[in-house]
Nucleic acid binder design. Structure first.
Lengths: 225, 225
DNA sequence: ATGTCGTTTAACGAAAGTGTTAAACAAATT
DNA sequence: AATTTGTTTAACACTTTCGTTAAACGACAT
């Protein structure tokens, strides 16, 4: 147990089977997110979890195993809900709206995931797509839907639209430290509020993209087929 | 010198004063970008540069010094030109257009900078803004300019506009491995071409934002599908 | 009472990493 | 010929990290 208060030798009941395991994962997440895999030692994690290294190795035999668990855990915290939305059958506008809502909400819960994932990916680029596919992400489906609604015929290619969507949703979290500091003067709450606001801001903007890319010119019309 | 070809004991003239230094920086950049500071050893760098660790320490006494050099070098590869644009006096449209062009061009040269900087920042958040200010970045100026042109009066707040701008320009590079793999099927060239295309794509989109946020956005209806 | 399970303490070996130093050497400078 | 500069080789001391092992201990179950 994580508590260290004058209980050098008082043991507790095992309570829930995986109680300590959760504590470990939590600490590992926190530190891996913050300093990356290479920048975090098993000792660091054990300390943060309030246990010792031996026990840590007892649960996860190697650092690689622990990291793998954390990494997949990070992805599975938002990919599934994303997949669900992507597979849903609705108008493109509703689709986009829900996608934005889902992603931003997920990011607000664990804001450090983007920079973590992006970093750990750069040392191992082919791994992400593999995992993504394992989890059922299929951009081809989204692209088809857009084509089906006429996106890309004139102006904006579907993949560019997806990139824009992702950029607008994810980047503000990946760059959070910078943005908070130099744009919001260190005011975390103002930052969070701004991110919340983006949930309703972005659909309007992206709707604009879609309008541009479908009909020529700017007269927009509700694209419900 | 990086060459290892049967010249175990042949020495070369010092040529230019900082010839080896450049080699070192280049190798350090490459590896730091790829694996981060903690994930890269001095030995790795020495090997990649084709020298030995002693010489490495001869040029940069400690790893921290070397890293500092690389980090600042990374920023100074694009921040100054960015500052120049930000300080220039031109219409908001031209301004935005040039900003996009500048950033994307810089990123195309060193695509790994975003994820590198973002990662190394998360362990040391207050450092970036400090350096940025040292280099003369002042978002206040840009915000004033926008206000001066009426941005933010109706719809889109200036800071949100800046965030969008940055997101659209920078994120595609930060997420390069993912995008290349799952959106372009591993085709690097297609990816680069797409990024090039964004130089002319983005100004149009962002121009749209600005239009929305300046004019009362009633002709083009605001949010909520 | 015995046993099991989660846990701690202590220690070990092996490897990797950092920073330093002394000595030599080759090429260019003087 | 002597000196300087960039460079290598070799070695050293020190720390960190990782993974493992043996032993014990406390709580709980049988």
């Amino acid at each position: 147990m994580p508590d260290r208060e004058a209980m050098t030798h008082l043991k507790k009941p095992p309570e829930n089977k995986t109680e300590t395991e959760k504590t470990i994962i939590a600490s590992a997440e926190k530190l891996f997110y913050l300093r990356g895999k290479a920048g975090t030692s098993m000792q660091d994690i054990a300390d943060d979890a309030g246990i010792n290294r031996t026990l840590l190795n007892y649960y996860f035999r190697t650092k690689d195993q622990l990291f793998e668990a954390v990494f997949r855990n990070a992805l599975s915290s938002f990919v599934p809900s994303l997949v669900e939305v992507m597979r849903s059958d609705q108008s493109l506008d509703a689709y986009v709206h829900q996608l934005i809502e889902t992603v931003i909400t997920a990011m607000l819960e664990k804001p450090q995931i983007p920079s973590f994932v992006l970093h750990e990916l750069s040392s191992n680029p082919q791994r992400m797509p593999q995992i993504m596919r394992e989890m059922g992400v299929d951009p081809g489906y989204a692209i088809e839907k857009m084509h089906g609604e006429g996106v890309g015929e004139v102006f904006l290619e579907p993949r560019q639209l997806i990139i824009n969507l992702l950029s607008l949703c994810v980047f503000p979290f990946a760059a959070r430290p910078v943005i908070v500091e130099i744009l919001y003067g260190g005011d975390q709450e103002a930052y969070v509020a701004a991110m919340e606001e983006r949930k309703i801001l972005l659909p309007a903007l992206v709707g604009q993209f879609i309008g541009m890319s479908k009909k020529q010119g700017n007269e927009q019309q509700p694209p419900t087929p």
